[in-house]
């Protein structure tokens, strides 16, 4: 299975009720797979007329308490930003998959990580966040879907799965897991027909005096809770490292052999891989910064996550970037060369 198909099947196993989407490379295998499998399962598949329609269909389906998702690639995700802001305001669960491609504009269809800011800063207007998961293998493309739906339902918000063209297209052997993960609160807010109960209202418009300010404080408290409890991060050989490479998604896969080769060359290197990009593993990186001199961030962009690394390091160590924008993919040798440049001169 390619990453896109693994993700799609995992979403179905995780109880997806309704998929809405509009085609765009490099994620077309998701709607193609859903168009076949969702009707087989007696569930909803709609190829919408646009990305804007897709995200608002997700809004509608989610408001009725159903598990809904959409998927797209960078330009399409830009079109959805209004809907994402409304979902945040209305506190509706949703899962949105972005299989990133090169930008800005229509860009190209090569793999990219240039939508980090858009995903982790909210993307649309208003003071809001979206939980952002960054899988790094076909197995994780599948594994992050039940987690994404559970987080979305638990916190009543959008979860973005931030992948890229390589993860979407590549194939690896996987095992699909059917276990249910979290105990979730009942969706007593959903619009299910107000027979025998008070009516529920789903809205993002708060016009009363201080009503919107209070609503924002409530959202903020939720976000702080998530920052405290939901950080996922993997690290390797950080304890004795003089240089730590920070990378997520497919870039983190390319970093691994580079760090291993650096170790073989006698350089004390390690890596940290954020799995949740928001909430960011600020504490883990801050702790590592107490012991080491150099952080190297490797990204398929001109440097976006590097800003979060700098915020976490807070001046305690040097933070450098090796970035390849516009669909460029760093090679193991390039990263290794950068690690050597940064560490070897100090040894002489």
């Amino acid at each position: 299975m390619c990453g896109n198909e693994a993700l799609a099947e995992a979403a179905i196993i995780a109880g997806l009720d309704a998929y809405f989407g509009y085609p765009i490379t490099p994620q077309n295998e998701i709607p193609a797979y859903m168009s076949r499998r969702m009707p087989e399962e007696g569930r909803v598949f709609v190829q919408s007329e646009s990305e804007l329609a897709a995200i608002n269909m997700v809004f509608g389906a989610s408001a009725t308490g159903k598990r809904a998702m959409t998927s797209s690639s960078s330009p399409g995700i830009s079109l959805m930003q209004e809907g994402l802001s409304y979902l945040a305001g209305a506190e509706l669960p949703a899962v949105v998959v972005n299989v990133m491609r090169g930008g800005p504009g229509l860009g190209n269809i090569a793999p990219s990580q240039a939508d980090y800011f858009q995903a982790t800063r909210g993307g649309g207007h208003g003071d809001y966040r979206t939980i952002t998961l960054a899988p790094a293998s076909v197995q994780e493309m599948a594994d992050c879907m039940p987690l994404a739906f559970d987080l979305a339902d638990q916190y009543r918000m959008t979860v973005i799965v931030l992948a890229d063209g390589i993860l979407g297209q590549m194939m690896e052997p996987i095992v699909l897991d059917k276990k249910k993960r979290r105990k979730l609160p009942a969706k007593d807010w959903a619009l299910t027909g107000a027979t025998g109960r008070e009516q529920n209202i789903v809205r993002s418009l708060w016009l009363g005096e201080t009503a919107l300010e209070n609503h924002n404080y409530k959202l903020q408290a939720k976000y702080e809770n998530i920052q405290k409890n939901e950080v996922l991060c993997e690290q390797y050989e950080v304890d004795d490292a003089e240089i730590v490479v920070v990378a997520y998604g497919i870039a983190a896969r390319i970093v691994r052999p580079a760090v291993n080769k650096a170790r073989q060359a006698g350089i004390k290197a390690g890596w940290i891989r954020p799995i949740t990009l928001w909430p960011f593993p600020t504490e883990q990186i801050s702790r590592a910064a107490d012991q080491m001199r150099i952080f190297l961030t490797v990204e398929m962009s001109n440097g976006q996550m590097v800003e979060d690394v700098k915020l976490a390091v807070a001046g305690k160590a040097a933070v450098l970037l090796y970035g390849r924008p516009g669909g460029g993919v760093p090679t193991v040798d390039e990263i290794l060369e950068r690690i050597k440049q940064l560490t070897l001169p100090a040894k002489r």
């Binding site: 790094a136 293998s137 197995q139 994780e140 594994d143 992050c144 987690l147 897991d177 996922l232 993997e234 390797y236 050989e237 691994r256 052999p257 291993n260 170790r263 073989q264 799995i275």
Partner: peptide
Amino acid sequence: MSWVTKYEMQDTR
């Protein structure tokens, strides 16, 4: 975290 793929340090040489 249970769903994370673990990669061990390997000497692939």
